[in-house]
Amino acid sequence: MKAALKKFIFAELIYHEAPDRFGEDDDLLEAGLDSMGIMRLIMFAEKEFGVTLPDTEIEPDNVRSLNALEKWIQQARSA
């Protein structure tokens, strides 16, 4: 899941970071992920992983890093 998220983020949402040097806990918001990026990321994740991410859980902390994202999506999946 993390690999798919990373691939999507660096192909579609953030262009000015070198993905190979980007760690799983590095800050995506600081790297330029903005509201439009988060919206597209959620659309992608819901379709790709067959999950509904609840409106009230869309928070900066849940999308801040690749690890946070994966944890959040997995929780939503098992809920």
Binding site: S35, M36, I38, M39, I42, M43, L53, D55, T56, I58
Partner: peptide, 12 residues
């Protein structure tokens, strides 16, 4: 539009 689209999509 971006913010309004986000609001419509996931704004509860």
């Amino acid at each position: 539009p971006t913010l309004l689209a986000f609001l419509a999509y996931k704004g509860n």
